[in-house]
Design a protein around this nucleic acid. Structure first.
Lengths: 146, 146
DNA sequence: CTTGTTGCAAAGGATTTGCACGGCT
DNA sequence: AGCCGTGCAAATCCTTTGCAACAAG
């Protein structure tokens, strides 16, 4: 986590940008988040500490975080852009419960490899991918049986 | 294609809805599309035949088409909701060129199986999934070398 | 001091909704 | 006739942009 802040600091400096309290509050809120916060969720979290921070700044800062390589945008299909940490977090895919919305992060090395092969077979130089697996989670299956 | 129209007709009737020229024009435009048209692209296509059809009706009809099982929403991350045919088209995933935006539809049975196993291993009852593979297509790789 | 940053409000783009009119059944 | 469907405009929702005041280097 300290690493992340240092990287952000470096990024800011190297681009000739400025270190502001807002930026660090937002980055901190993001780093403390576990799941996939939306811009609005981050805004709410930051406002608890500094109620003057505007939504706009959250958007702008998250863009910087993505550029710096610390964050990544993900879309689960609920119409919101969500963010997830990228550093120190191995790549993973998402299992999403269609009933309660819970998401689990998963990886399967074999699938990863096959995806790369598949892209190459079509002449593509693979850069990244998103795999969203939708289903009904164990809990919801039980609830639905009742 | 006739099948599709019949299914749509059945759906409409079974729900006590009405058969209108607009709906059929939109469904036809959608069925004739090859790729992944957005609501706006479909609207433009329909307007060539009947310029009075409104954008709103396109949205509403596409929702019906999704409910009827003939269409499905997909999102490539360009901010637009796109639609693809669901009937008579085996399931497939998407290879998307990050440079020119071209999309190729692909399937790999082995990956499909593994995905199912992965979901089950986490207690999920799998329903569907989306796999988006991003990369640089063969053409763009050549162009970028120059 | 110079330049980047902020919050607000306004603008934007995509999609939805309210409503009176018109068209199926 | 009754009710659904339509187009339009207005309303939403999320995100971006313009701008004047402000703060970091």
């Amino acid at each position: 986590m300290h690493d992340s802040i240092r990287i952000f600091q470096n990024y800011i400096t190297s681009k000739g940008l400025k270190s502001t309290s807002q930026r660090f509050r937002i980055v901190e809120a993001f780093l403390q988040s576990t799941g996939h916060p939306s811009a609005e969720e981050l805004h709410a979290k930051v406002r608890e500490i500094d109620p003057t921070v505007g939504q706009t700044t959250v958007y702008r800062t998250m863009k910087l975080l993505c550029d710096s390589g610390l964050a990544r945008e993900v879309q689960f299909g609920d119409g919101l852009t969500r963010y997830e940490q990228r550093l120190g977090v191995e790549h993973h895919d998402h299992l999403i419960c269609e009933h309660c919305g819970a998401t689990i992060e998963v990886v399967d090395e074999q699938i990863e490899k096959l995806q790369e092969v598949l892209a190459l077979r079509h002449g593509f130089k693979p850069t990244r991918h998103h795999l969203y697996l939708y289903g009904i989670c164990a809990d919801c299956q039980k609830k639905l049986q009742k």
